[in-house]
């Protein structure tokens, strides 16, 4: 399983800027709602996760992985991807600002790991992040 198994065109949005990290996470959540992958509760749970636990979801410089416990609010295993040229701060002093936001929706905890691994594999390749940075359209990215 790789990222392309979980990511579809309707869940990718390139080059959008946000005034707060909450706006960015909700934007990604709204894409997932639009594709029938989650409901509003999961979107808000992703926001609450950070409000409750802090900005640890910014797992490496420039990259955040928004997620929450499924709790029956996830209908399709999907990843949404947002690129943010100006970056948005989550309050993580080591890894801010975030330029690439992945919102991960998995139906079960087990599937969570498979999807996290797929995303991890993608972002561990420098050339993939480079492609995201330069991408103006979806064809510029190889998942």
């Amino acid at each position: 399983m790789t990222l392309k198994d979980f990511i579809s065109e309707e869940n990718i949005h390139l080059n959008e800027n946000f005034s707060s990290w909450q706006d960015a996470v909700r934007f990604a959540g709204n894409m997932l709602i639009g594709s029938g992958s989650i409901n509003e509760r999961y979107r808000e749970d992703m926001v609450k996760m950070v409000e409750t636990n802090g900005p640890y979801i910014v797992i490496m410089p420039g990259v955040a992985l928004a997620h929450a416990r499924p709790n029956g609010n996830v209908f399709k295993n999907q990843v949404a991807l947002l690129t943010i040229p100006q970056g948005v701060n989550f309050g993580n002093k080591d890894n801010d600002p975030v330029h690439y936001l992945f919102a991960i929706a998995a139906r079960t905890n087990k599937e969570h790991l498979v999807m996290f691994k797929a995303v991890a594999e993608f972002i561990s390749e420098e050339k993939n992040l480079q492609a995201l940075q330069e991408a103006v359209c979806l064809k510029d990215i190889e998942f």
């Binding site: 996760m49 409750t52 636990n53 640890y56 979801i57 797992i59 969570h112």
Partner: peptide, 14 residues
Amino acid sequence: VCGAGVGTSTLLRV
């Protein structure tokens, strides 16, 4: 250890 215990901490475990 992470917040939800499903995503980040699992990846960290690996």
